[in-house]
Nucleic acid binder design. Sequence first.
DNA 1: TATCCTTGTTACTGACCGGTAACATCCCTG
DNA 2: CAGGGATGTTACCGGTCAGTAACAAGGATA
Lengths: 208, 208
Amino acid sequence: MSAAASSAFPSANPRVPPRERIIAAASDLFYRHGIRAVGVEAIAEAAGTNKMTLYRHFNSKDELVAEYLRCLARGGEKFWLELEVAHPSDPRAQLRGWLAAMQAHVLDSDQRGCALANAAVELPEKEHPARCVIEQYKSEQRGRLVRLCAVCGVDEPELLADELFLLLEGAHVSAQSLGPNGPASRLVRMGEAVIASHIPASSSIAPR
Amino acid sequence: MSAAASSAFPSANPRVPPRERIIAAASDLFYRHGIRAVGVEAIAEAAGTNKMTLYRHFNSKDELVAEYLRCLARGGEKFWLELEVAHPSDPRAQLRGWLAAMQAHVLDSDQRGCALANAAVELPEKEHPARCVIEQYKSEQRGRLVRLCAVCGVDEPELLADELFLLLEGAHVSAQSLGPNGPASRLVRMGEAVIASHIPASSSIAPR
DNA sequence: TATCCTTGTTACTGACCGGTAACATCCCTG
DNA sequence: CAGGGATGTTACCGGTCAGTAACAAGGATA
């Protein structure tokens, strides 16, 4: 477990190179308090380093923000790979697993919505280097969902995928206003209802 | 039309009392650029007044933010009343009208999501005076939707209402990352599909 | 005309912001 | 041991932030 601790709190472990510590600290602070609410000095301090080192690794705060989102996007893609590994050639199990994981993620007590979507709210400027990261990630997430629904043999895979996609996006934002006992807590039920309405009555994705 | 112009651009009309001009200017700037991105001086200038007058009407920027959201919440409630007036004792027409209006609103070119939800993203501090406004508004919107679904004779009104609620919230945020040609553009289709799956096959809400 | 409340103007505070310069120090490599 | 690249330290820049003080000017009412 001690080996894992170094990756669990990279921002406090001097063995981890400063660049990673900075990204880890920035990820925590940006997500919890918002991007505009966190200054670079606070990030450097939380990373156990200083502003100069931060600016030697990142040209600007905006670039750091973009890199922060790129890391999260990579994590999201990794999750999809794990899903395929966990349920090889069983797309419905993948869909079920995705839905359950998303609900658990949304309801996580110290979650505050999707970091990418939140960043889009905080950074409306079209030229911001983070925006293309956000658009690309969201587009790819939707694409994966569409393909998964298609492999499941759904009649209109795009329609079902969009419904699930919007339900998830809505659950993320709703959890921030109505809390973990609001509609977000019923995400799995809603997702299954939507899926069931797209799949011939003979076979639901929920076994038995 | 000249009389309407005074209410269309209250921030520029000296006949409108400064308090309303300030709220109008703040609404525009907060929504377009984000709350934290806009300073009080810029608001005062856009309202054709100055910072001192602003602080004579609002104790702090945070209070102005709360008032900005309160005004929007009042507007949202007004919309529901208009919906009842437009389709008296016809709940399914109200539901249909709500869905169509929401899609039009989401796809409006200079829309940037739900101002209340965006504010929740930008202001995570639990003590912020805007947070209770947001929670109350979102809770009430969901409540109205639940009651409307119940009057429509749906089996599980809460489930359908939550699905529609999350679809709308998701469409709002999705429009900011995937644009007006993304899933948000199919909100009506998705909403009708979800509604149809909750209503006995004999009667869809879509006429003909 | 005299009074009073609202508004405008200017200047200011103290704090914080993103970003940089100059220099000291360290540790790994040769 | 010597050298060099990465890191740390300190101080600074110009700008912006939210919020306030003091005073002048307006405009309505009495």
